[in-house]
Design a protein around this nucleic acid. Sequence first.
DNA 1: TTGGAGTGTCAACAAGGCTGACTTAAAATA
DNA 2: TATTTTAAGTCAGCCTTGTTGACACTCCAA
Lengths: 169, 169
Amino acid sequence: MNDRSNTPVSGESLLFLTDEQLRKGIEAMFFAYRGFTADPDRILDEHGYGRAHHRALHFINRTHGTTVNNLLAILGVTKQSLNRVLRTLIADGLVESRVGRTDRRERNLYLTEAGRELERALSEAQRERMRAAYRAAGPQAVAGFRQGLEAMMDHEIRRHYANLRDRRP
Amino acid sequence: MNDRSNTPVSGESLLFLTDEQLRKGIEAMFFAYRGFTADPDRILDEHGYGRAHHRALHFINRTHGTTVNNLLAILGVTKQSLNRVLRTLIADGLVESRVGRTDRRERNLYLTEAGRELERALSEAQRERMRAAYRAAGPQAVAGFRQGLEAMMDHEIRRHYANLRDRRP
DNA sequence: TTGGAGTGTCAACAAGGCTGACTTAAAATA
DNA sequence: TATTTTAAGTCAGCCTTGTTGACACTCCAA
């Protein structure tokens, strides 16, 4: 329809992309994300949880002792929405909420042993999928894959992500 | 925790990936998908639609005259769920549903001019994001990006995707 | 002509988003 | 010290989008 030409993406060129090529990328993104979440979704379902729980577990595990406000910023949801999820995770003994030491208004969040166990099962499924994808795509594709993903994030979120990356214990 | 080593992914090696590297890939996937849907989400919101409407518009546009059953298979939702979305799109005059000519039980779905217009706005936002990502990642990353995404899909879905790709008019 | 496929619709429910209003406790500040 | 702001939690209510289950209609094909 609006395709400019049939010129493919050539090695080192100025990057002419047809609408057709872009459409394929868009659909690949859609289907890939579905594949990416499929395995955890099955595990979560067995426990009566959803993706929202997975996200919370992931980021609490990744930044031990993070505060509720911090989590809100990363996840980009409302306090009420997150609270509903956190409440069940705490009630089920997967997450522990401790009053902050320096600022007693804050709550620091930690995974319990049970929480770590579920998180490990979820992330292992996802890591395995990621490994398989990397294997299938080949070593030379790995860098390009990550670069493409990072370039697609919103800038502020990418900053967030970069900060998180460095702040690791 | 379970990191095997600090050995990075090396050019042509056997692909040893640390858990840390995999975790970064997992988070990149999460944040990238959010960026990927952010622009269309804003447009959809102005029209009172959601992502479900976007998906329907996309695949009807992409395979003109597709049947409801076809769409169900691609989207992976229930008939009832899709029907709710289709009903509003038809009522709003964005989608036309014509009784099948060869099999009058089937309905063939088409975008109206208004439907094409919205679809174009949505996909243009997404294409622009994709172009920017490719530009930022650089030409040598483009192939790797697509390969990584395709390798992450479920196999049956990838077949679907491949078929769709070839069946284009 | 009958069975089954494709489609549509009704009802009811759940997850997980949202807004708005309000409380409590603690920290920061005037 | 008194006041304001901040962090967290909660209640109520709404929306979208997913789910089941039941059922009706059309119409093709055996």
